[in-house]
């Protein structure tokens, strides 16, 4: 399984990568901004994308749009954001996110959600 984690917070990204690797959920690739994420997504195919909403260059919502509309891929997407505003959550789901986790979150919960999505 290949997972892409996009977050501009290096500490958080490291933590997520560590948790997913520890749970043997697959090979984790990271992108620290929207531009990097788009570049990686253009050349590689992933089984799951975990993205933050607020990132430099392109937001998480733009990444979802890019995957669904430009790449025309059905890759499952989990949105991870400190912004739990109803509108943002709804917008993320409307444009194609599969799950939304608001920060602060429990790493164990994230792992469970990732497992559930990957099983499908």
């Amino acid at each position: 399984m290949k997972i892409l984690v996009c977050d501009d917070d290096e500490t958080m990204m490291g933590m997520i990568r560590f948790k997913l690797s520890r749970e043997n959920l697959g090979e984790v690739t990271t992108a620290s901004n929207g531009k990097e994420a788009k570049a990686i997504l253009q050349v590689e195919t992933f089984d799951l994308v975990i993205t933050d909403i607020h990132m430099p260059f392109h937001s998480g919502l733009e990444i979802i749009n890019f995957i669904r509309n430009d790449l025309k891929k059905e890759t499952p997407i989990i949105v991870l954001s400190a912004e739990g505003l109803e509108n943002t959550v709804l917008q993320a789901f409307e444009i194609g996110a599969n799950d939304f986790i608001s920060k602060p979150f429990s790493p164990a919960e994230l792992a469970v959600r990732v497992k559930r999505i990957l099983k499908k």
Binding site: D9, T11, M12, M15, A82, K103, P104, F105, S106, P107, A108, E109
Partner: peptide, 15 residues
């Protein structure tokens, strides 16, 4: 700084 950064984003037993 790292502890505070993580604490801000995590919940549950991690905190």
């Amino acid at each position: 700084d790292q502890i505070l950064e993580l604490k801000k984003n995590l919940s549950g037993s991690a905190v």
